[in-house]
């Protein structure tokens, strides 16, 4: 499978909670509202016509407020929840066609999960917790401990191997959760509001740990969050859910620059645009400057680019990519323009 090909493919996924979900499926397909379904038919709409393709090695954020169906969605990928209708493919495997044993093997080797409330085994030490997934795979204890130890060190918990989870702070417990998930060598990492229960400072810390690890590991990560800042910081791609339906998909740039509707507009209104937007997203791609003198990299944020642009005055500054090629140019005016908060009226 090539890198660009989707590793996880979700097609027309529906989930209705209730006693007879199949009978309500056609109503949902006709576009009945969540409210109406609940009040008239006593069924809860979990997900409605979700389509999502997640490329191999990318970090896909799924964002939404509570009740938007994001936790339901992530549980479909390893089939902790059975869909009402739709298809889920991982690589060339149809997840919904898997038999019990196949599904178990799939969960053991392909997916690993990190939970909002950590879900560690309280009666086991850090070392035993991290080796839990390996344990279930049937790997011998010594080997499992050896591998677990490496991951414990990697998440910065060396020295805590023999502690019980209850003794650790929330941030440390989630490091255990992360190490446990990474240790299985599963290529898909499912993170369900993994950092939402942590203090802001520790959360930032964990986000950086995750980005560092991802730089090196290139796992395919599905990350659930209700926090837009977190979504923008982590996500290669961001999908926004509302009331079980997909509202917008795209990169952080696309979502900030072109919010699909008022709902998302409200979300992005108050974020720090200078920090989220990258030069790449606002530069002019035509009329490339000849030389690359004083060029700035395309992946830095507007905030980081401003000092260098300010010293250039009104002149266009060349922008180069990681390979050093000039790919565009940018002026300080264009940056300031991009930082203006959009109103409902002048939205594009």
């Amino acid at each position: 499978m090539s890198d660009s090909e989707a590793l996880i493919r979700i097609e027309h996924l529906y989930k209705i909670f209730g006693s007879r979900p199949q009978t309500k499926l056609s109503l949902v397909k006709q576009g009945i509202s969540k409210q109406e379904l609940l009040e008239e038919h006593h069924h809860v709409l979990g997900l409605s016509d979700i389509n999502l393709e997640i490329p191999k090695g990318s970090l896909q954020v799924v964002m939404g407020l509570s009740g938007s169906g994001k936790s339901t969605l992530i549980r479909h990928i390893n089939r902790l929840i059975e869909p009402t209708a739709g298809e889920i493919w991982v690589g060339s495997g149809d997840v919904l066609k898997m038999e019990k044993v196949q599904l178990r093997e799939f969960r053991r080797h392909r997916t690993a999960m990190v939970f909002q409330r950590f879900a560690l085994l309280p009666h086991r030490t850090v070392l035993e917790n991290v080796s839990y997934g390996l344990n279930i795979q049937g790997i011998a204890k010594d080997e499992a401990y050896k591998r677990a130890e490496r991951w414990i060190e990697r998440v910065g918990l060396a020295g805590y191997e023999q502690h019980f989870p209850a003794k650790l702070s929330g941030g440390m417990q989630q490091r255990v959760g992360l190490a446990r998930a990474l240790a299985t060598d599963a290529d898909i990492l499912l993170m369900d509001e993994a950092f939402s229960a942590l203090d802001p400072l520790i959360r930032t810390d964990m986000q950086n740990i995750l980005l560092d690890l991802q730089e090196e590991l290139h796992r395919t990560i599905v990350f659930i969050t209700h926090d837009l800042d977190e979504a923008l910081k982590l996500g290669d791609q961001i999908a926004i859910l509302r009331d079980g339906g997909m509202v917008q998909q795209g990169t952080a740039q696309q979502i900030v620059m072109k919010p699909a509707d008022d709902y998302i507009m409200d979300f992005v209104r108050d974020i720090n645009r200078a920090r989220v937007l990258r030069i790449r997203g606002v530069m002019a791609r035509e009329g490339l400057p000849e030389n690359a003198d004083g060029a700035i990299p395309e992946h830095i944020s507007l905030e980081d680019a401003l000092p260098r642009l300010a010293s250039a005055g009104h002149e266009a500054v060349p922008v180069q990519n990681k390979q050093g090629q000039v790919v565009g140019s940018i002026t300080v005016e264009a940056v300031i323009q991009a930082m203006i908060r959009p109103d409902h009226d002048n939205r594009n």
Binding site: R107, M113, A119, L121, Y132
Partner: peptide, 25 residues
């Protein structure tokens, strides 16, 4: 329930879930 869900997510068999999680807890 969350610990049980974790056991499932990591691919526990019924027996593994019983002996590693349910009985000890």
């Amino acid at each position: 329930k969350q610990v049980l869900e974790a056991a499932d997510a990591f691919g526990s068999s019924y027996w593994q879930r019983l002996k590693d999680v349910q009985i000890p807890l």
